[in-house]
Design a protein around this nucleic acid. Structure first.
Lengths: 149, 149
DNA sequence: TTTAGTGCAAAGGCTTTGCAGATGT
DNA sequence: ACATCTGCAAAGCCTTTGCACTAAA
């Protein structure tokens, strides 16, 4: 897993954020960042916390929860909520907005984007005198593989 | 609060469902249905449970949780998840699918629909060999009132 | 040295579950 | 009568918080 080079850019973002806000750099924060960035793309804190416990047993779950919030503020992670009502985080850096196709059978996520839909969403909001800042589109169904089963 | 006549149809649905599946009719289920149908449109079980505790103190929270799941199966309620990771229920009967504009300031929900977006979503799914069953679109931002403040 | 960050454990909140008693069929 | 449903309380889970200790700056 050579996540080193791709993590470098994120590390710079984190450093920049930490410097800018006067927040301290700690070994834990970099370790959590490494595990987060090499982990699955849509991960819950408790899943992430388990991964971290394996690799760095000394880091407590509370720190992971606290750190993920920090990462959101720093612009490295973004909170998303899938159908099950659980907060998940996805990598934000170098990762533009996309919608999700979610297989209700195997749980697979497909990331997709349609600029025409985005535009229509904008117009829909305008019709309701609503000023949108972001949106979330999740399409549930069966992925190619699960349609056969 | 004259919810009686509008509730009549739902009660029939519930009766039909109960009859069809061999599930029993109980006083609690009808009471929970009445409170649910006259309550706010997007309600969490714990909110609903509080309302029910006021009107029918004898009904326990566990029953409310169990009953809402039953209502989903019966087609009277539908689970939705807003940005905060909490499961909410909305009335399904006589209420076709719609998307949500959610004000991040006052929490207001606007229900909206755009058939062109729906169509494009369908096509988006097809492009990914994905067979959609349902979707959820949430647009976050500021409602008309909160834009002024 | 001084203040933020951390780990641990306890507390919180919401949801589910086990069980004995109540209730529908 | 008999299987389901209910209420209560306990247990579960995930997440947050308080506090003394550690470690950046």
């Amino acid at each position: 897993m050579s996540s080193a080079s791709s993590n470098k850019a994120e590390r710079e973002i984190l450093d920049k954020y930490l410097a800018r806000t006067g927040v301290r750099r700690s070994a834990q924060r970099y370790k959590i960042m490494d595990v987060f960035l090499s982990a699955e793309h849509h991960i819950t804190v408790s899943e992430l916390s388990d991964l971290i416990k394996k690799k760095y047993p000394a880091i407590g779950a509370a720190t992971v929860y606290r750190t993920m919030k920090l990462f959101c503020e720093a612009g490295i992670a973004e909170e998303i909520v899938i159908g099950d009502g659980v907060v998940r985080y996805e990598h934000k850096y170098g990762h533009e907005h996309h919608d999700h196709l979610i297989c209700t059978d195997c749980g697979k996520f497909i990331e997709a984007k349609d600029s025409q839909i985005e535009l229509l969403q904008q117009k829909l909001a305008e019709r309701h005198d609503f000023s949108p800042t972001y949106h979330r589109l999740q399409i549930f169904g069966l992925c190619k593989k699960c349609q056969k089963d």
